[in-house]
Amino acid sequence: LQAFIKTLTGKTFTVEMEPSDTIENLKAKIQDKEGIPPDQQRLIFAGKQLEDGRTLSDYNIQKESTLHLVL
């Protein structure tokens, strides 16, 4: 599935991932794409901060969901 990552500066980019991917995997993909170390990334979806060990499906993240990236 493709999801949108929106930063506080208003920049939006897309990442490809599977519902079974962990938040940790997602942070690694963001690092590959944007060069931001995972330990500096905080991802917010539906008002909740996402925990590394959980999966996208745990948070009911669907295709074309928008996640907010806070540094």
Rank of each mutant, 00 (worst) to 15 (best):
L50K: 00
P19A: 10
N60L: 09
T66R: 06
A46K: 15
L56E: 01
K33D: 03
K33M: 14
P19S: 11
Y59V: 04
G47H: 05
T14L: 12
A46E: 15
P19T: 11
L69C: 01
T14W: 09
H68P: 02
E51N: 06
A3P: 06
K33S: 10
F45E: 01
N60S: 08
D58Q: 07
G47M: 04
L50W: 03
L50S: 01
F4N: 10
L43M: 02
L50P: 02
R54F: 13
L43T: 00
R54N: 10
A28P: 00
P38F: 14
E64R: 07
A28D: 06
M17A: 10
I5D: 02
I61N: 04
D32K: 12
K48Q: 14
D58E: 11
P38W: 11
T12H: 08
I30T: 00
D32G: 08
G35D: 05
Q31E: 10
F13Q: 00
R42P: 01
I61R: 03
L56F: 08
S65G: 07
E51L: 09
F45D: 00
V70K: 04
D39Y: 12
E51C: 06
E18Q: 13
I36T: 08
E16S: 10
G35Q: 05
T22L: 09
I23Y: 01
K29M: 08
D58L: 03
A46T: 05
T12R: 07
M17I: 14
A3L: 15
Q41C: 05
L43K: 00
E18W: 13
L69N: 00
L50D: 01
K29S: 04
S20G: 11
V70I: 13
L67F: 07
I36V: 07
Q40W: 09
V15E: 01
I61T: 06
L69W: 01
K48M: 13
I5Y: 02
R42K: 12
L26T: 01
D32P: 01
T9Q: 11
S57A: 14
L1I: 15
E24S: 13
G10F: 04
S65F: 15
Q2S: 10
L8T: 14
D21L: 04
K27G: 01
I23W: 02
Q40S: 09
A3V: 15
E18V: 11
K27C: 02
P19W: 13
Q2C: 10
E51H: 07
L67W: 04
D58P: 01
L8R: 12
K11R: 13
H68D: 07
R42G: 05
Q41T: 03
T7P: 06
F13A: 01
I23R: 01
K6R: 11
S65E: 08
T9A: 11
K63Y: 10
M17K: 00
D58H: 12
P37Q: 06
T9D: 14
T66E: 09
E64D: 15
T22G: 03
I44G: 02
I44M: 11
L1V: 13
Q62F: 11
K27N: 00
I36R: 02
Y59M: 04
